[in-house]
Amino acid sequence: MRAETLARLQAERAAKRPVALLTRLSDGAQHLFPADQVPGPLAEAALAALDADAAGNLNLEGEAWFIHPYNPPLRLLVIGAAHITQALAPMAPALGFAVTVIDPRRAFATEERLPGVTLIDAWPDDAMAELAPDTRTAVVTLTHDPKLDDPALDIALRSGAFYIGALGSRRTHAKRVARLTELGHGAEAIARIHAPVGLDIRAVTAAEIALSIMAEIVACRRGASLGAVRAQPAMAAKVSA
């Protein structure tokens, strides 16, 4: 690898842009995708590898190519430094997620309660706009307080976040759906929200709820049917009636 190629690759990664390194195995010739112009089949293979987050091989005109995707890190943005957050924060990094906790209530968002976690004590709408959730981001609201949860959900629904979860009972969620509808979100967009949050494993303790949330996030990321978007048109209709 040329030092210049390594520098370009590392710069793309530092800027948190998805990038794929394409290597011709016969002679080590390399391209970066999408920065460099590459033949169509290579570009398609690069996109597929980035999408699957898995390295791949391609035979192009008798030459073997290695397709190595470098995706930005997975992120978990948690709104609310709650009890469940304390259980969630140590679990997520082991599953490959960098955790950021947003809570303007400084009594909650403390290093003591969440050691080693990135804490942001700004209002969720400001913090979320700054963090700009992308397709490698999961967003979970855990405050129980619409003043904090709703602005975060508002921004999450306008983003490409691959997972959006909101703590609260079905009843709480029905009211939330009504408020988000007033903010201009359609039923289809609101159906992206997983609520009640987490897989139904009959979780009781904070750690069990955290486990159910992480399991649902993994299911979504891996495309398991368990993590499929929940359509809740009936509930939305009931609230708006």
Partner: peptide
């Protein structure tokens, strides 16, 4: 299969 390349 392992590809080995010098960093030049």
């Amino acid at each position: 299969k392992v590809f080995v390349e010098p960093l030049a």
